[in-house]
């Protein structure tokens, strides 16, 4: 079970957020706005993926998200909580400074989530090395 294994289950209608699998890590890239239906579909996709294959970590890349609200904050927290029940850690990667400030002002500090500067760091955090022959110190 290696490499990129297809997209998540087809949602049926409209856009779905692609869920990529890299080894035993799921990579979800959020871009632009996340609507209610998409959020629900994404939650289902992720939990289904985790239980089907032996996934130990979920990386949610939100570097393409410029605006967050309490809804997105709640969805992220729920995804993390669901993943944790299935023994997978969720790492939120690539949050923009403006987004971080907005979340903190809203009082959403997302205590249950791990965070990382970008996807590479997130992979590192989950124990997947993406370095190319650099040799750690």
């Amino acid at each position: 079970m290696t490499g990129i294994a297809g997209h998540g289950p087809v949602g049926g209608h409209g856009f779905t957020v692609p869920v990529l699998q890299l080894g035993d890590v799921l990579l979800v890239t959020l871009q632009g706005e996340l609507h209610d239906g998409m959020a629900e579909q994404l939650q289902q996709d992720i939990t289904a993926r985790i239980s089907h294959s032996r996934v130990t970590g979920v990386v949610i890349d939100i570097s393409g998200v410029e605006i967050v609200d309490s809804f997105l904050g709640r969805v992220l927290a729920e995804i993390a909580a669901g993943a944790k029940l299935l023994a997978a850690r969720t790492v939120l990667a690539g949050m923009r400074p403006a987004v971080a400030i907005t979340l903190v002002e809203l009082g959403l500090t997302l205590p249950g989530l791990w965070t990382a500067l970008d996807v590479e760091r997130a992979m590192e955090l989950l124990g997947v090395t993406t370095r190319r022959g650099e040799g750690s110190p």
Binding site: L92, M95, P97, V99, A100, V104, E105, T109, T115
Partner: peptide, 12 residues
């Protein structure tokens, strides 16, 4: 605490 929380959200 807000600053600490924001830095954490950025992965630091």
């Amino acid at each position: 605490m807000k600053t600490v929380a924001a830095a954490r959200l950025m992965g630091a």
